[in-house]
Design a protein around this nucleic acid. Structure first.
Lengths: 247, 247
DNA sequence: GCTACCGTTCTGCTGTGCGGAACAGACCGG
DNA sequence: CCGGTCTGTTCCGCACAGCAGAACGGTAGC
């Protein structure tokens, strides 16, 4: 940052400061934004409206504002936005401990959608998949969630398909293995060279069926490390669940 | 982007639009910025000064302005900033054709620095290394540039080292191979699981010694594809060289 | 129901943002 | 070398754009 320009523009300064605040401090309400800038609430609201208009901010479903796509952030997907905010610090901690890319996914029909990704710091890593979907029966997060369903519920999910897209007998066998192990594996099932482990996140009624997962280059996947990764995923899922239970 | 707010702030709108233009269209002068916004040059200059002040823009060594770190971009390194702008569209085209991560590196002493990275679109990819350095004798871009030097120049680069860090005889043998092949290989020499190919970019006096490279997960590296990748690198280097020659 | 918060909408007024003009520098052609 | 044409940068007078206060509608807690 430089010295203040000789011919500064106060209104522009407020807007840019506010964008930076959103980026650094996460969700902000209008009143807090006003306090931080030293302006009236109505002024803060107008500035936020301009930032939203030009994609520098997005309003979440609790009426607070977060950094938008123009600031190098992805737009939160609405139904899972609250879950995103809750889970993000825990995913960050997970990725820092394990140094692999972590994801939060939600079940949408027979697919999972990636709500948020925290990328590993290493040069070779699995990248950000936020906003993408994968077939639930192939993705680690999808399998983790499906494993919490009864066999009948899983069969119903894939009924009425002509031609059938899923070998349901094989899927049910795999979901039994997931339940036994407590963790779901996707070994190159959706992307060459990518292996992922997923763990369900249980929450109260109304919260989307979700999972946390670790995704890594297959070259870094070791069967003798699965137990450690599974424990990290379980701890992360438990932490998110505690927040969900606490409201 | 949403509908224009009922109580829009014109000055803020100009600033945010300008930030977005810098992000999307690369280096912009004051006059072009003024034309694009429909404002006076003096107004455009004030807006740019505000963006620089709050890290949303940086002025390059040709007095033009580019997106700054607050917009999720890295600050251009000054000596290579012009080269960056020239090379970027060609790197983008290369990455699109080959679907692997491409880089531009410059030689700095006995290291190379990554000036810019264009990441592949695939989920498993080598990430952005802009701003990082690697030892020249290990990196593909470093070897590509060193191969253009005489043996005496290379030996001089590594003289006066106690203890010696480089087996210079082995390095000279490898640089001969690079010259014969026209492309330099770094197979896991600097990062587990990453393989890279580099090609020198020749330019007029005053331009930093540079190279373009492709970096990929080792799992995707095929010896029978090296010739094709080398041809793509040669075409990209030639395109950048033509721009450098044209001024 | 009342109070205290919230985000959102509207309007009068004054001081801030604008553009024009001047300045300084770079480049090119005669 | 000089003049012309571009460039980015600096400065200042003025009028209208951005501000804050007030009102509105909603939510939560007592």
């Amino acid at each position: 940052m430089r010295n203040r320009p000789a011919y500064a523009i106060e209104s522009v300064d407020h807007a840019l400061r506010l964008a930076t605040l959103l980026q650094q401090e996460g969700p902000l309400g209008v009143s807090e934004a006003a306090r931080r800038l030293g302006v009236a609430r109505s002024t803060a609201h107008r500035l936020l409206a301009m930032l939203v208009y030009r994609d520098f901010a997005v309003q979440d479903d609790r009426r607070r504002y977060v950094a938008g796509p123009a600031l190098g952030r992805r737009v939160p997907t609405e139904p899972a936005a609250a879950l995103r905010g809750l889970a993000l610090p825990h995913l960050r901690a997970l990725t820092e401990r394990v140094d692999e890319t972590s994801n939060l996914t939600v079940l949408v029909g027979d697919h999972v959608r990636f709500v948020v990704t925290v990328e590993a710091a290493r040069v070779l890593r699995v990248g950000d998949r936020e906003g993408r979907t994968l077939p639930a029966h192939l993705a680690s997060g999808g399998k983790a969630v499906l494993a919490t369903r009864t066999d009948a519920e899983v069969l119903a999910l894939y009924a009425d398909r002509h031609p059938p897209v899923v070998d349901t007998a094989a899927l049910l066998r795999e979901l039994r293995r997931v339940r036994r192990r407590g963790v779901a594996l996707n070994d190159r099932g959706t992307e060459p060279g990518v292996t992922a482990l997923g763990r369900v996140v249980r929450g109260p009624r109304g919260v989307p069926s979700a999972a946390v997962s670790l995704a890594m280059p297959t070259s870094r996947f070791r069967r003798d490390r699965v137990a450690g990764w599974a424990a990290e995923l379980a701890a992360t899922a438990a932490a998110v669940e505690r927040e969900l239970a606490g409201g």
